[in-house]
Nucleic acid binder design. Structure first.
Length: 426
RNA sequence: GCGCCAGUAGCUCAAUGGACAGAGCGUUGGUCUACGAAACCAAAGGCUGCAGGUUCGAAUCCUGUCUGGCGCACCA
C-alpha cells in the first residue's frame, strides 16, 4: 500500500514510495505471492477542504469575479488548469456557490486522473484504490472508537475524544476525535488497517515517507488493543528526496507550489532512469537528486549499462539469424571457459536475489545486483567471448549463442522486475 | 528540549558483526578491418564525522559529541 493525497500532481519527492512499492510488488509476485497494490488516499479532512477552497478561488478568479484565496491554500498552477476545466463543464453555474464541496470533489477527481496518468508513465499500476471517506460511510471509524471504549481505553476531555495510549506504554495520550467532532487521521488509519487485515492481507506492507514515522506506533497500538495481530503489518519508512539544480537545494512544498513534478522529470530523463535512480538507493538514505547530474548521467549511466547488455544480446541473435545460425541445438557442455562459467553462475543467481529482496523487503538490492553483478558479469564476457567469428567452431558458436539467449532472458526479467524497459535497440 | 533517520573516495551511493570497505560518475593511461566502443583493460583516489567502549573481530552493536534531514498538533 502506498498513500499520497490527491492535493496536487505527483512530485519527485513523493514518487519514491511508489517506485519502491511497485518494484517490491513485482518481486513478491515473482516469489509466488498473490499481491495487491493498493492506493490509500485521503479525501476527507482539512487539507482537502483547503484544496476545495483553493479551487473555488481560482474559479472565481478565472471568471473575473471577486475572490479570496485561502490562507494556506494550494498555490500550484495546476489549479488554474482545473478551474478552466470546471468552467468548460459548468460555465458560471457555480459562481454563487457558498459550499466548497463541489470544488473539492471536482479537484479531487481531476487531480486523481493526473496522478494516475503520471504513475502510468513510470509503469506503476495500482490494483485497487481505497479512499478514507468510505471508512466513515461504513461506520468503521465509529467502530474503532466504540471498540476501544469497551476496552476502557477511551475518555472524553476538553471536548475531544482521547485514546489512552499511556496505558499502552506511550508517553502521551492521543486524540481520536477533535473537539470539532472530526476524527483525527489516526482513527480512520486504524480502521483502514483493520479492514486490510480482515481482507486477509498477510503480510500487509505499508510504504510511508519519513514525515509519517510517528504515525504507525499509534495504529499498531490500536490494532493490538482491538485484538488484531499487528505483526502482520510491515512498515517501510523511506527518507525524503531533496532536489538539487544548479548547485542549489530546492525544498519541495506542494502547498506553496514549489516542486518538480514527476512528469517534468520523466520528460527530462525518461521513465527508466527515473525508476533506476530512485530504486538504486536504500530507503534510509536521504537521497539527493541532482537534476543536472541526472541529465548528464543519463547519457552514460547504470541504466544504459544494464539495458545495453540486453541490446547486445538482441543484436547477436539478429546477426546469428541473418547468418543462418540456430542456437536451438547448442550444446552447453562446450562452455568451459572461466568467463563463460562466471556468467552462467551469475545468470542462475536471479531467483536467490529475488528471495533476498523479498525476505528483507529491500527492492534496492535488485537494482544493485542488476548493475554491479549481472551487467558487470555480462559485458566483459561478451567483449571477449566471441560467438560469430571465423575462428570459433560452429558447435561452440551455437553453444555461445545459447548462453547469450539465456542472458537475454535473465536481463529482460530483471529489468521487468524493476519496471524498466528491455530494449532491443537503443 | 525530546524522538526517528542518516554522515563511507572529489560527487551520487553500496556493504546478514567476519577476507584487502565496493560500484557508477569524474580524473589519468591503454583497446574498434570481428556479434552495438552507451563496451573492455589498467591506474590514482579512504583514519567509514569525531571521542571512548563491547568483541577473537566493528562502517555495522553501546555511550557521548558535532553536522544534516524529518517529526514532536484537536494537520495527514
Amino acid at each position: 500500500c502506498v498513500s499520497a493525497n490527491p492535493t496536487g500532481p505527483i512530485t519527485v519527492g513523493r514518487i519514491r514510495g511508489g517506485v519502491m512499492g511497485d518494484t517490491l510488488a513485482r518481486l513478491l509476485r515473482a516469489a509466488g505471492y498473490d499481491v495487491e497494490m493498493e492506493y490509500y488516499f485521503n479525501n476527507a479532512g482539512a487539507q482537502m477542504r483547503r484544496l476545495g477552497l483553493s479551487l473555488q478561488a481560482r474559479y472565481l478568479e478565472k471568471l473575473g469575479l471577486p475572490f479570496e484565496f485561502p490562507e494556506d491554500g494550494y498555490q500550484g498552477d495546476y489549479l488554474y488548469d482545473i478551474a478552466d476545466l470546471l468552467i468548460e463543464e459548468q460555465g458560471e453555474a457555480l459562481a454563487d456557490e457558498a459550499d466548497s464541496t463541489p470544488f473539492k470533489e471536482f479537484a479531487e477527481a481531476k487531480i486523481f486522473e493526473m496522478i494516475r496518468a503520471s504513475l502510468r508513465r513510470v509503469n506503476i499500476k495500482f490494483d485497487s484504490f481505497f479512499n478514507e471517506n468510505s471508512l466513515y460511510e461504513t461506520g468503521a471509524v465509529d467502530q474503532v472508537i466504540e471498540g476501544l471504549r469497551e476496552k476502557g481505553l477511551v475518555y472524553d476531555a476538553e471536548g475531544a475524544v482521547w485514546f489512552k495510549t499511556t496505558d499502552l506504554g506511550m508517553e502521551q495520550d492521543k486524540v481520536l476525535v477533535k473537539s470539532t467532532g472530526e476524527p483525527t487521521y489516526r482513527t480512520p488509519d486504524i480502521a483502514y488497517h483493520i479492514d486490510k487485515l480482515e481482507r486477509g492481507f498477510d503480510p500487509a506492507i505499508n510504504i510511508l515517507g519519513a514525515d509519517h514515522q510517528e504515525e504507525y506506533p499509534d495504529v499498531a497500538a490500536g490494532l493490538r488493543a482491538l485484538g488484531y495481530d499487528d505483526s502482520k503489518v510491515h512498515v517501510i519508512i523511506h527518507q525524503f528526496v531533496t532536489l538539487k539544480e544548479g548547485g542549489v537545494k530546492k525544498r519541495m512544498r506542494t502547498r506553496k507550489g514549489e516542486y518538480v513534478t514527476l512528469d517534468e522529470l520523466v520528460d527530462d530523463i525518461g521513465p527508466d532512469a527515473v525508476r533506476y535512480f530512485i530504486l538504486a538507493r536504500s530507503p534510509t538514505s536521504h537521497m539527493e537528486f541532482d537534476l543536472d547530474l541526472a541529465r548528464q548521467q543519463s547519457n552514460e549511466n547504470p541504466v544504459f549499462y544494464i539495458q545495453n547488455a540486453h541490446v547486445r544480446c538482441a543484436s547477436i541473435a539478429r546477426v546469428a539469424a541473418e547468418r543462418g545460425f540456430s542456437m536451438e541445438e547448442g550444446d552447453v557442455s562446450l562452455l568451459t571457459d572461466q568467463k563463460e562459467l562466471t556468467l552462467i553462475r551469475k545468470l542462475i543467481e536471479l531467483p536467490e536475489i529475488v528471495e533476498l529482496c523479498v525476505g528483507e523487503l529491500a527492492p534496492h538490492k535488485l537494482a544493485f545486483w542488476a548493475h554491479e553483478e549481472l551487467a558487470r558479469a555480462f559485458h566483459p564476457t561478451y567483449d571477449e567471448i566471441r560467438a560469430l567469428h571465423s575462428d570459433v567452431p560452429e558447435d561452440l558458436a551455437r553453444a555461445r549463442l545459447k548462453l547469450y539467449a539465456a542472458a537475454r532472458i535473465v536481463l529482460a526479467r530483471t529489468l521487468d522486475l524493476m519496471g524498466m524497459n528491455a530494449p532491443d535497440v537503443m
